[in-house]
Amino acid sequence: MTGVASASLTGIPDYGRVAVFGGIYSNHLALAAAIDDARGRSVDAILALGDLGAFGPNPDKVFPLLREHGIPVVRGNYDDSIARGLDDCQCGYTDPRDNHYARLSYRYTYQRTSAENRAWMAHFPDEIRFRLGGREVLAFHGSPRQTNEFLWESTTPTHFLDKLADDFRADILLGTHTGIHWTRRWAKGARRAGAGGVPDAPGTEPGRAWRTYVNVGALGRPANDGRTEVWYAVLDGSGDALDVAFVPVAYDHEALAEEMRSEELPEEFVQTILTGWWTTCLEILPGKERAVGRY
């Protein structure tokens, strides 16, 4: 990291370029690869949006990486559950098969997370605010109003995002939780423009204020796209228009799969790592996102 670009009078940092990581799900190999990749892109800061554990092997392995690189973390629902020793991950599944796998995974992660790391997670904030080229940014886990709210591309209206941006006073909203990356830009306050809806706003018009939502995806598992890479986002606010880039991260996924097998994690999880297709948690996918997957 090259350090904070500048500090505003209010003490809130103002960056030029940042890397943002979504759910890590104990995938320490992908996390290490993503940190290397982000550092190579000269970012001013890296932050993580929570859900450090779940799914993958040996949850304690991600913590030294985060500490060593000074990566601030927003609290995810999984972190909240593990830190407080709750009965479940607050994932909100209603499908019995998904609940079965969620219980296995949660029990494993809880048992393998040290007391020291659990105590550290208890201090994660629910949100982080900063500036990017002067724009107000709010980073959270699911949504700014609810840690475990899913914001999928096909179920999140632009006017809904505009209301969140108003309610929580930010022009750039950064979240994760779903595991699939996407972004949308729209004209600020467009939902008040009258009937007819809020058109997406791909271009830049001088004099207009724009807002952006970015679901940064997840480092923990592939994006249900048949690719073994995982994804994070780089946001560059140094120019006139905010630039959002999704970065695929190739890592030694076969080594992760071996480690998962040696930890006796479900073979269904291993298959997701090896094939890029989700095999569990399918109930949470809206029809549009589900239809493009294999299962």
Partner: peptide, 15 residues
Amino acid sequence: VAEVLAESVEMGVKE
């Protein structure tokens, strides 16, 4: 329905 949909936009309805 269209009249109510238009109203719903400002209210930030999700689904």
